[in-house]
């Protein structure tokens, strides 16, 4: 009995140290965002709650035009995530519930191949393509090229293959049309997968960096990640307190999406694991 208690104590000790180490940077970022600029640059560095919180957040908001950044990032993240979900469900449905139509395998391969073509592999021509389409510096460039998703198609296809065949058979006897089956039977069943994919994709798009850096220029379509980079001057002393305030604001949306949907996220993936 005593041995178990001691090992429990060590376990807790280890976990507390690990968790503090991992959570500390976030706490630190927040504390820096409350200091004034002189306190940031005093030695030894201070770990305390400063008095300049409101000023820093106000300055971060105004100098980065944060309202616009949040709007842009939120818009492209939601549109891209939804676009991916709709297109993935349609494709997965076609692959799972229709017979061996001509070219099925090759079409499946075409979608799978997206895995092998991350942005850096095609960045120059894709940029030129945006230029030719007059899409540079627009929402189109930030959303449309990302609508297709091999991960999404695989996720839903995997899930549809685990649904009992009797479901379709029974529906077919009732004379159901494919779109009706998709809409009123499959969609409600796919809820936790939809939520899981939405969460992952929302955070993915929100945190995208290279592509917005390359294709956007004006403030009209600038996203949070790039707005924050622009707060860091290359030649002067950065105001880390203001930068951290902007960073904290900029991480709240993905954090909220993540924490509210976390349960479904875990369920969505746990389901995948079953088969």
């Amino acid at each position: 009995m005593k041995k178990i208690k001691v090992s429990r104590l060590f376990l807790h000790l280890f976990l507390i140290i690990s968790v503090s180490l991992i959570a500390f940077p976030i706490v630190y970022a927040f504390l820096v965002s409350t200091l004034d600029v002189n306190q940031v640059y005093t030695s030894p560095p201070q770990l305390r709650f400063g008095s300049n919180l409101i000023n820093n957040y106000r300055e971060a908001w105004v100098s980065s035009n944060m309202g616009r950044l949040l709007l842009n990032s939120g818009f492209i993240s939601i549109v891209t995530a939804l676009g991916k979900i709709v297109l993935s469900i349609c494709a997965a449905f076609a692959f799972t519930y229709f017979g061996n139509f001509k070219g099925k395998n090759i079409l499946f391969l075409i979608i799978l191949i997206t895995h092998m073509l991350p942005l850096p592999i095609r960045i120059v021509p894709t940029y030129q393509l945006m230029d030719n389409l007059n899409w540079l510096d627009s929402y189109y460039a930030l959303t449309v090229p990302f609508f297709a998703s091999a991960t999404g198609v695989l996720l839903f296809r995997q899930f549809y293959m685990t649904i009992p065949h009797s479901l379709l058979e029974a529906s077919l006897i009732d004379g159901i049309t494919p779109m009706r089956f998709l809409w009123s039977i499959l969609l409600p069943l796919s809820k936790s997968n939809i939520v899981a994919l939405f969460t992952i994709e929302f955070i993915w798009v929100w945190n995208q960096y290279l592509w917005p850096l390359v294709v956007t220029n004006s403030e009209r379509v600038r996203v949070v990640q790039i707005g924050l980079k622009m707060l860091i001057p290359s030649d002067a002393q950065p105001e880390w307190n203001v930068i951290m305030a902007a960073l904290i604001i900029g991480v709240i949306p993905p954090l909220v999406v993540y924490l509210t949907l976390q349960k479904s996220l875990v369920e969505g993936f746990a389901l995948q694991q079953d088969k």
Binding site: S88, A91, F101, I110, P125, T126, P145, A148
Partner: peptide, 22 residues
């Protein structure tokens, strides 16, 4: 025909923005 219709958006995007630029 419906299967093709459902697949076409994904295929068009993959070819236009991924395969062709690569």
């Amino acid at each position: 025909f419906l299967a093709y219709l459902l697949l076409s958006p994904s295929i068009i995007i993959v070819i236009t923005f991924l395969i062709y630029p690569s």
